[in-house]
């Protein structure tokens, strides 16, 4: 057997139970996907298509689903010694406001089992990467939204994850900040090379970031309907690159033909 895929999802379905006699809401229907080690994959789909539900399953927060989901061959939610390190970046920074930026990162390091002697160097390194080295001892509420999200990205890379799950991490930021963070994300990713599964409803973002785009249909019963390979787009990519822009136009065209109409979000 070849080395297992970084992320392997096989025919995963998820239905949220309805209240009383009303039928449940089927969020995902028989979704199947694989992400290879070191690959950057975006899931692109309209709001409410079950993208976030899938990430919740992969991060082990939701264990009520049908089908099979594994990370590097370990079933999702497996917390045994030797199970792969998985980091998450959420839509909101989700920093603990009573801890400084440094202490927030140290929380993730401690939870992932890093010895205390390594905390300082690891934290300093990732804070440097996101440009927050001068803000290590600030509390999250003293920082702007973009800086908070950078801190949460630093937290994710601090544990040197094998797999990084990102749930629309830039959607709450203004476009200029989001652009800068996307560029930073790609730089850090090429240093660490984790496998990334990145959920977004922004076609340009998906094109700019990923090796491969997986498209999801609208809910209920969201499933994968198309796949676009972007390995042809050379890295490092820039916003000025005409090829990136043209590719994103093609992605939007494919999205419209697949999903039928332009969604408000796209």
């Amino acid at each position: 057997m070849a080395s297992p895929a970084a992320i392997e999802v096989t025919e995963v379905s998820k239905t949220f139970p309805g209240k009383g006699r009303s039928p449940g809401w089927k969020a995902i229907a028989e979704a199947t996907l694989t992400v290879d080690p070191g690959e950057f994959v975006c899931i692109l789909g309209p709001s409410g298509c079950g993208k976030s539900t899938l990430l919740n399953i992969l991060s082990g927060l939701d264990d009520q689903y049908d089908g099979h989901a594994a990370i590097h061959g370990h079933p999702v939610g497996d917390r045994q010694f030797g199970s792969p390190r998985v980091a998450c970046v959420f839509q909101e920074p989700r920093l603990m406001p009573w801890r400084t930026v440094r202490a927030n990162i140290e929380f993730a390091l401690a939870a992932s089992g890093f010895i205390e002697a390594q905390w300082r160097t690891r934290t300093d390194r990732v804070l440097n990467l996101v440009g927050l080295e001068d803000f290590a001892d600030f509390y999250p509420l003293q920082l702007s939204g973009g800086m908070q999200q950078r801190a949460s990205i630093a937290r994710a890379f601090a544990i040197e994850p094998e797999v990084l799950l990102m749930d629309e991490p830039f959607s709450a930021l203004d476009e200029l900040t989001a652009r800068r963070l996307r560029q930073q994300l790609l730089t850090i990713w090429s240093d660490f090379r984790p496998s990334v599964l990145f959920v977004t409803h922004n076609a340009f973002e998906a094109t700019f970031l990923s090796d491969r785009i997986l498209m999801m249909t609208k809910g209920p019963g969201g499933r994968f309907c198309d796949e676009i390979n972007l390995n042809g787009l050379a890295r490092p990519r820039t916003y000025e690159d005409v090829k990136v822009f043209e590719a994103s136009r093609d992605v939007v065209a494919r999205l419209i033909s697949r999903i039928g109409q332009i969604d408000q979000d796209l």
Binding site: S59, G60, L61, A87, R94, M96, A108, A111, S112, L165
Partner: peptide, 24 residues
Amino acid sequence: HKLIDMAKAYHAGRWRIIRQVIAP
């Protein structure tokens, strides 16, 4: 609860979550 989910996603144990995420 979003912070508790964050802690779980980073594989924090139950006791750590109670002490460092819920108690504060």
